Simulated assay, not measured.
Amino acid sequence: MNHDLRVFYGWVRRSREILFGYCASLPPEIYLREHPDFAFGSIRNLHAHVADCYLWWVGTVGLGQPPTGIRGSEVPDVATMRAVFAQADAVVEEALQTFNQLDRVYEWTHPVRGWKARVSQRWLLLHPITHEFHHKGQITALGRVLGYPAVLGPGVDTDLVNPEF
């Protein structure tokens, strides 16, 4: 499998851990608090949406696994969310081991809605990653709106890939 994708996903996981540290520092009620002006309503729900994106695109579309349909309401706290992301990591690992035609474009049809998308195995891996970073910004913005800005220290950022050199 493409070694670069494996290394890059390791960087994504390290960056995710920074966000998990921030979320774990929040009072539990803040992690769960709904805010009507934010998509998905709460930090927890945004987090669940990100994990579900990995499980859907990589697991269901890419690997043919049954849909999981992770919902924020099923995840009571940050510790449980870590377990959900462990499932997503396992799915990505399986894809990294089995995807063998990364750049072959094919048409995929949604099994219920019928809409079509042209995808590749590489896209199935990279789309959830870019999606995750988009929502990390929303998570930290919502935290700031709720009175808990992310104070991460010099050179630490949740919106960037944090490589280990």
Score class of each variant (00 low, 15 high):
A39I: 12
G64D: 00
G21R: 10
F38Q: 08
G64K: 01
H35L: 05
F40E: 08
R33P: 06
L32M: 10
S42L: 03
L26A: 02
C23G: 02
I18S: 08
L32Y: 02
D37I: 07
I30V: 14
L32C: 08
R13N: 09
G21C: 04
G21Y: 03
R14N: 08
C53Y: 04
V50A: 03
S42I: 02
W56V: 06
C53A: 15
P27Q: 14
R44V: 01
D52A: 00
V58E: 11
G64P: 00
H47M: 03
G62T: 04
F20Y: 14
H49F: 01
H49Y: 04
F40H: 14
D52G: 05
I43S: 02
G62A: 02
Y22T: 06
L26R: 12
P27F: 04
C53D: 10
C53E: 07
L46A: 09
G21F: 05
A48W: 06
P36Y: 05
S15T: 06
L55Y: 03
G62H: 13
H35C: 03
V58N: 12
R16G: 11
G59I: 07
I30M: 04
S25L: 10
R13K: 15
Y31H: 12
S42R: 12
Y22G: 08
Y22Q: 13
Y22C: 10
A51C: 09
Y31K: 12
A24V: 09
P28R: 12
H35E: 09
G21V: 05
Y54S: 02
E17A: 15
Y54P: 01
H47P: 01
L26N: 09
E34T: 14
Y54C: 08
P27A: 01
C23A: 14
P36W: 06
E34V: 10
L63A: 04
R33V: 05
H49W: 08
L19V: 13
P27Y: 03
G59H: 01
D37L: 14
Y22F: 13
F40C: 12
A51R: 07
C23V: 02
L19T: 11
H49L: 08
E17D: 12
H49T: 08
R16H: 12
S42N: 09
Y31L: 15
G62W: 09
N45C: 02
Y31W: 14
R33C: 09
V50M: 13
L46D: 02
G64Y: 04
W56Y: 14
V61C: 13
V61N: 11
L26V: 02
P36T: 07
H47T: 05
F20R: 05
I18Q: 10
V58T: 09
Y54G: 07
G64V: 00
D37W: 03
G64L: 01
Y22I: 11
S42G: 00
H49R: 10
L63V: 04
Y54M: 09
T60W: 02
R13S: 11
L46Q: 15
C23K: 12
I30Y: 10
E17N: 14
I43V: 13
L55E: 10
L26Q: 09
A24Y: 04
V50T: 05
L19I: 11
Y54R: 11
L55T: 07
V50R: 00
D52S: 04
